[in-house]
C-alpha cells in the first residue's frame, strides 16, 4: 500500500514496548486494503499476509473486525502482543477516519 490520499494510519504501543502500526484504505464502510507493520513477533511470519487478506472487504465495525481477527490467531503464535492488540490498532485507525484525520 503506497502512502497516498485516503490512507488512514494508526498505531498501538503494547505493554512490553512492541509497536503495531496499521495503514488502511477504506471505501464506503468497508476496508479495501490493510497493512500491519512494526517490531512485533508472529510465528509463522507469513500469516500476517493472510490476516491482511481476510480483512479486505470487511465492514469496519469493531465487533466484525474482532470476529475475524481473534479466531485467525488460533494457529498463530504471538510473542509480546495479543490478538486483541490487533483489534485495538484497527479500531484506533478507524477512529482516525471518524475524526477526519485522513493522511
Amino acid at each position: 500500500m503506497k502512502a497516498e490520499n485516503g490512507i488512514l494510519k494508526g498505531e498501538l504501543k503494547v505493554r512490553g514496548g512492541k509497536l503495531i502500526k496499521c495503514r488502511m484504505r477504506v471505501r464506503g464502510s468497508v476496508i479495501e486494503e490493510i497493512k500491519f507493520s512494526g517490531d512485533f513477533f508472529m510465528y509463522p511470519e507469513e500469516k500476517i499476509e493472510e490476516l491482511e487478506e481476510i480483512l479486505k472487504g470487511v465492514e469496519f465495525k469493531e465487533e466484525k473486525i474482532r470476529g475475524m481477527v481473534i479466531p485467525f490467531f488460533d494457529n498463530t503464535e504471538l510473542i509480546g502482543e495479543s490478538p486483541e492488540d490487533f483489534v485495538t490498532v484497527v479500531s484506533i485507525t478507524i477512529k482516525n477516519l471518524k475524526k477526519g484525520e485522513k493522511v
Binding site: 517490531d39 512485533f40 500476517i48
Partner: peptide, 9 residues
C-alpha cells in the same frame, strides 16, 4: 529491519 517493519517508516 524486522520482517513486519516498513523500510520507509
Amino acid at each position: 529491519i524486522g520482517y513486519f517493519q516498513s523500510m520507509e517508516e
